[in-house]
Nucleic acid binder design. Sequence first.
DNA 1: ATGATAATTTTAAACGTTTACGAAAAAAGG
DNA 2: CCTTTTTTCGTAAACGTTTAAAATTATCAT
Lengths: 332, 332
Amino acid sequence: MSVTIKDIAKVAGVSYATVSRALNDHPDINEKTKKKIKKIAKQMGYTPNAVARGLVKKNTNMIALLIPDISNPFYPEVARGVEDIARKNGYCVFLCNTNWDEQNEHKYLNILKERRVDGIIIAPVTIDTYHYVSKEKADVPVVYIGNRIDDSSSSFVVIDDFKAGYIATEYLVKLGHRNIAFIGGHDRTTSHLDRINGYKRALTEHKLETDINIIKDYSFKKESGYLIFLEMVKNRRVPTAIVAENDIIALGIMEAAEKHGYEVPRDISIIGIDDIEFGSLSKINLTTVAQPKFEIGQKSAGILLDLISGSIESKQVILEPFLIVRGTCSRI
Amino acid sequence: MSVTIKDIAKVAGVSYATVSRALNDHPDINEKTKKKIKKIAKQMGYTPNAVARGLVKKNTNMIALLIPDISNPFYPEVARGVEDIARKNGYCVFLCNTNWDEQNEHKYLNILKERRVDGIIIAPVTIDTYHYVSKEKADVPVVYIGNRIDDSSSSFVVIDDFKAGYIATEYLVKLGHRNIAFIGGHDRTTSHLDRINGYKRALTEHKLETDINIIKDYSFKKESGYLIFLEMVKNRRVPTAIVAENDIIALGIMEAAEKHGYEVPRDISIIGIDDIEFGSLSKINLTTVAQPKFEIGQKSAGILLDLISGSIESKQVILEPFLIVRGTCSRI
DNA sequence: ATGATAATTTTAAACGTTTACGAAAAAAGG
DNA sequence: CCTTTTTTCGTAAACGTTTAAAATTATCAT
C-alpha cells in the first residue's frame, strides 16, 4: 500500500485538500505550509496516483500512436517524433502495433477508448479506419498520418504522395527509361492511390505506358516486393526500372533482382519512397524519395495536443517529399 | 460525457451494482437480466471506464517496456514479442524509448510509477538501472532483458552473452585470423562485459592477443562503429577481423571500411551479434551471432505476467545464441 | 402453508484524487 | 476596537467503478 495524500495530511496535521493543493502549487496555500507538506511528502516517499487523478480530472495525459508495422524503420522514426513532442508536454504515448490488420486496429481503438486516452495518432491500415473511427464516435481527438482524409473537420499530416510518385517516376524517365513499372500495396489508402497517380501522370505526360503491380496480401513486407518481382521474371515482363511504393518493398525487389541475376542498377533501376535509415548504407545505397519522418511525428503530435487543448478545431498538413539520388538508378 | 453504469442502471431499472456485475458476467446475476442489461449497454454505446476500474481494483492492466533505442531494429522485434504475450492476456504495453539516456530512464520510471503500471520490462541503459529501481523500491514487478542481475530474487531474460562473444571470436579464429579486434560499447552492462569476456577467452585459449576498442559515447549507433574504425585506420592498427558487439555497430564498421578502401570480407572480416533483419539483405549479408529477439520479448512478458499474478517469485532465463554464417567473414 | 434454503438484487462503502464553496484567521482600514 | 478585505484552510461532493454485506425474492421439501 503506497502512501496517499491522506497519510500525508495526518502527519502534517492538515486536511487532505490542503495537501493536494500544496503539492500542486495552488496559490491559496501559505508558502510555509507548502514547504512543510512537500517535505513530508518527500520523506514519506509519496508518489501521486495518476489513475485517481485521471478519474476526477477526466484526462489521462496519455496519447496513443497506432502504427501498422513497428518493424518497418519508417515508423519508429515517426514514433520518436511524436514521443519527443508528447514528452515535452507531459504526455505519455502508448505505442500500438496493428500489424497491418484491421481487426487489431479496431481492437486497439476500443481498448484506447476504455483507457480514456486523451488523443490518438493513427497511421491507418486502410482508409476505412477513418470511417470506423467516425462511426464509433470517438470523442477523442484523432490525427491521421500517411493518409489524407477527405473531410475538412478532421486532421492529418501527410506528404504530398502524388508528388512523391511523380518525382520518383520522372527521375527515371529523365534517366532515359521507357519501361517503368510500379510495385506497391493495396489500393485502400490515399497514400498508395496518390503515389500511383503520381506515377501514372509522370508516364502519361511522356506518353509512356504504365505497368502497375499490386501486392496481394495487405501488408508491406520485404517479401511482398520479392514475390512480385519473381512473378515479373516468370512472366518475362521485367522492366528496365521500377518505382517501389516504399523502401521496404524496394529492398525486397532488389533482393529478388540480385538473386535472379539482375544487377542493380546495371540491369534494372530501382527507386523507393520513404528514405529509411538502412537504405543509406553504402552497400544498399538506395535512391529514394524522402519524407521527413521525425517531423511527421512531431507535427502530428503538436496538432494532437492543440486539438486536445481545444486551441484548434482541425489542421491538415502536407509536407514536401524530396528526391535523394543514390546508386540504384542509372541512365539506360 | 460518455454513458456510465449509472445511466444504464437508470434505464434498466436496477441498481448500478447489478449492472456492474451483469457486465462482468458475475455468476449471481440472473441470466435474463444479464442479457437485458448487456443489450441496453450496447444500445447506449457504453464503454467501461478503465481508469475508474483501475482505481478500485488497484491494477491497470498495463505493463511498460523500456528500451534504449527504438531505431535499432533489435528492439522493435522484442517489442513485438512482449506485445504478443501481453495482448493475449489482456494487457496493454507502454513502449518507452530511453534513447540511451539514464536521465530519461529515471524519468520514465517515475512516470510509470505514478501511472501505476502493473509491471515493467526494462532493457537497461547501464547496470546502475537495477540499483536505481531497487532503491526506489518499485513495488511493481520488474524483469530485465539483456542484462544479468546478480541477485537471485530478481528476474531477467538474456542470452548467454559470454558464449555469443566466444562463438563469434572462435569462428574468426577457425578461419585463420590471428589479429582480431573487438569493437563495442561502454562497460556498464553485463551484456557488454560478457561478450567482451567471451571474446577474450576465445583469443587467450588460442594464445592470441586482444585488441579492445570501446565506443566513447554511451550509445550504440552506426556512427559509433564508423568512428572507431576510422581511428583504427588513422592509427594504422587495422586488424584482419573484427567482432562487433552488435549488428548496428557492425554495419557502421562495414560502412567505414567500405569508404576507406577495405573490401569486406576480402580485406577485413566482420562479424556482428544480434541478427537484425537488415543484416540478411544479400547486399549486406552480415555474418552474425543471433539471439532470438521475438522470443526474448515473449519470455520476458510471460515472466512478468507470472510475477504480477504472483505465481512465481522470480525467474532467470538464459537463452542460447547461435552462429549465422553469411558473407562478411572469410578465411585469411 | 411454513420454514429453510438458494438465488438474486440493493445498499453503501471504498479506491485516491480534485475542487467548489464556505469558514476561520489574519491583515488592513477606519 | 470594530468592520472589511484578504489570505489560508477545511468540508464535502464528485469522478465511475467494484464488492462485501445486508436485504429481498424465489424455490422447494415437508
